[in-house]
Design a protein around this nucleic acid. Sequence first.
DNA 1: ACAGCTTTGTGAAACTGTGCACAAGCGTCG
DNA 2: CGACGCTTGTGCACAGTTTCACAAAGCTGT
Lengths: 215, 215
Amino acid sequence: MYLKLLSDQFELGITNISSEELAELGGVNAAKVRKDLSYLGSYGTRGVGYDVEFLVFQIKRELGLTHEWHVVVVGAGHLGNALAGYGGFGERGFPVGGVVDVDPAKIGTVVGGVRVRHLDELAAVVHSRKISIGVIATPAVAAQHAADSLVSAGITSILNFAPTIINTPHGISVRKVDLAVELQILSYHEQRRANVREATKLKAVPGNGRRGASA
Amino acid sequence: MYLKLLSDQFELGITNISSEELAELGGVNAAKVRKDLSYLGSYGTRGVGYDVEFLVFQIKRELGLTHEWHVVVVGAGHLGNALAGYGGFGERGFPVGGVVDVDPAKIGTVVGGVRVRHLDELAAVVHSRKISIGVIATPAVAAQHAADSLVSAGITSILNFAPTIINTPHGISVRKVDLAVELQILSYHEQRRANVREATKLKAVPGNGRRGASA
DNA sequence: ACAGCTTTGTGAAACTGTGCACAAGCGTCG
DNA sequence: CGACGCTTGTGCACAGTTTCACAAAGCTGT
C-alpha cells in the first residue's frame, strides 16, 4: 500500500512526505506508518519527513521489485484470459511469460500476447524464462492438479484464483484470492444494515442487538 | 472459509464434522474453529461434533446469503468482461444484474448475458433490480468517478478492483482487491528465498540476517 | 443407571498488533 | 549560535486475537 501511495505521489511531483500525510492518504494512523517504515531502516529526516523517491526504492528493494518477475498462468478460460490480457500485471513488474491449458481448442491461441501451450510443456515454459511465480486460473476441480504441476515444474510461489484450498509441499508460498468471498463479506455488511433497519422500524428490544461493526 | 469447506464436505456426503476435522481442512487451530462457530450460537453436539448441513445454513443466514444479491459491474473492459462472464459469481449467489461503461463502442454489446448500458443509466439499472452491491472494474483514473456514481445511484457496498483507494461517504462498505499487490507479496517471499540462498552460499556473517519468515 | 470415551464451549493465559506520548534530531530564523 | 517549531523513532500501555486447558455434556455399551 505504501509503495502504491508513494509512487502515485512521486508521479504528482511530490518529493517529500510526512508520516502524517502518508497516514492520511492510506487511511491509517501516523504512528503505524512510522513503525511500518522503520522496519526498512531509519530513512526519514526528523523535522522534515521522508524522501518519496528514496522510500519507493527502499520498499521496492525489500519487496524484491528491483527486477521483473515473469509469471505463468495456468488456465486460459475467462479468468486466465482476463488476467493475461489485463496489462496491469506487466505495468507493475509482473509480465506474463507463459499461459498453459489442457484444452486442445485453446492451445495455440494467443492470449495477452502469448501463445497458449499445453500443461505438459509447463516445465519447459518455466525454465526457458526462469519463472518462479505461477497463477492458477482453472476451475476448482483442476486447481490441485495445476498446483502439483507448477510445483513439479519448479515454481515456488503460487497465486490461486480457484475457489478451493490447494495443498503444497512446505516451502511453497501460496496466496489465495476468492472473488466470491469478497462479495460474501459485502453481503454480510448489507445483511447487517438490513437487520439494523428492521430493528429500528420495530423500535423494540434494545440491547438485543448484535456486536457493532463499522463500514 | 468455513462456509466453503462445509459446503464442499456436504457435497461429498459428510453429514457430521468435528472442530478437529474442520480445523485440519482449513489449516487452523481447532479451538479457534470452536470459538468462531460459537459466535453463531451453540450449534454443536458435545461428543459428536457439528451437523454440516445445519451449520451451512446458519452461516449463510448470518452472512445474508439466504437470497441472491444482484451486483452491477462498472467498466466493461478486460476485467469487467472477465468478472461478468466468470460464472462463479452467479453460482455463489451474486448474479450480475447489470454492466455499465462510458465507452460508446461498448454500450449495447452483451457481456455475461447482460447488455452493457451507459454509466448515466446506472441509477435506473440499480433501482430496477434492487441492486445494493457495485463492482468497480475501471482503470484507476476512473475509479473515483465510478464510486461517486455508484453512491449517487444508491449502492451501499463496493468491491473495488481498480488499483487506487477510493473515498466514499461514511456508511458505505468498500473492499479492495489489487491483483498486483498479491503478486508483490509473492515477490517478497521469492526475494527472501533468494536472500537466504545468497547468505547460505557466502556462509559468512551469521546473525547479520533479517527477521525470520515462513512460507 | 453408570463408566468411559469423545467433543464442545469457554474462562484464562499468552501472544500479537496498534496507538499514544515524548525524547531526540533536524532545519530555520533572528 | 541558540531558541523554536516540526517530525521521526520508539518505549510503553492498551486492545484484540489466538491458543491452552478443562469442566460440562452427549453418546455407547454393559
